[in-house]
């Protein structure tokens, strides 16, 4: 990976990584730190990373940094325990995107991660598995669970509206 490749990577993927991170943590400064840290880690290995692998390396690094950070600052509930069939909605939602974002927040972190990588970045199951250390089958299950949950979530909200 050359200097130009690296700088191209910044230009092409910095926003994407930032969006990916900020969907998990709402702290913009922290998200920015994670992106910076990820690029610095990539820069240190710039000579050993092929240009074609740069994006995956970047997202993998960012994801693992994110996991470390969220473990340290873990104040969120473990959404693995959430009962997806019961939700209380006191807020009025205006459009589908807002509803979807609210639903996304209800997902377990890992489901959110794989779904974001799938929809935001268009990764296939295998690539997502490489980034998140999951098997292809696990990735697929998580994505399908997430979609099913979101479908039901949207349906419930829309029926209320």
């Amino acid at each position: 990976m050359t200097l130009n490749d690296y700088n191209s990577c910044v230009q092409l993927h910095a926003d994407g990584v930032y969006r990916f991170i900020i969907k998990h943590i709402r702290d913009k400064d922290l998200a920015r730190d994670i992106v910076q840290d990820s690029f610095e880690k990539m820069w240190r290995k710039v000579e050993s990373i092929g240009a074609e692998k740069a994006k995956t390396y970047l997202f993998t690094t960012a994801y693992h940094t994110l996991v470390d950070v969220t473990r340290k600052n873990s104040k969120k509930a473990n959404f693995n325990e959430v009962n997806f069939n019961e939700h209380s909605h006191t807020k009025q939602y205006s459009d589908l995107k807002e509803i979807l974002n609210m639903g996304l927040e209800q997902l377990p972190e890992i489901q959110k991660t794989v779904l974001l990588l799938r929809d935001y970045e268009g990764y296939d199951y295998e690539e997502i598995g490489n980034i998140t250390n999951l098997t292809e089958s696990q990735v697929k299950v998580y994505i399908f669970r997430a979609r099913t949950f979101l479908k039901n979530y949207i349906g419930k909200i829309e029926s209320v509206i």
Binding site: L3, Y6, N7, V10, Q11, A14, D15, G16, V17, Y18, R19, I22, R32, V35, Q36, F39, W43, L96, K97, L100, L104, L115, L116, D119, Y120, A146, R147, L150, K151, I154, G155
Partner: peptide
């Protein structure tokens, strides 16, 4: 139709501030 609604779209108006600081 309901499943199609679960497709996430990135907010393209969210940018990493000052990308140049990442460049070498």
């Amino acid at each position: 139709t309901q499943f199609k609604k679960t497709k996430l779209t990135a907010d393209l108006f969210v940018f990493y501030p000052n990308k140049n600081e990442l460049k070498k």
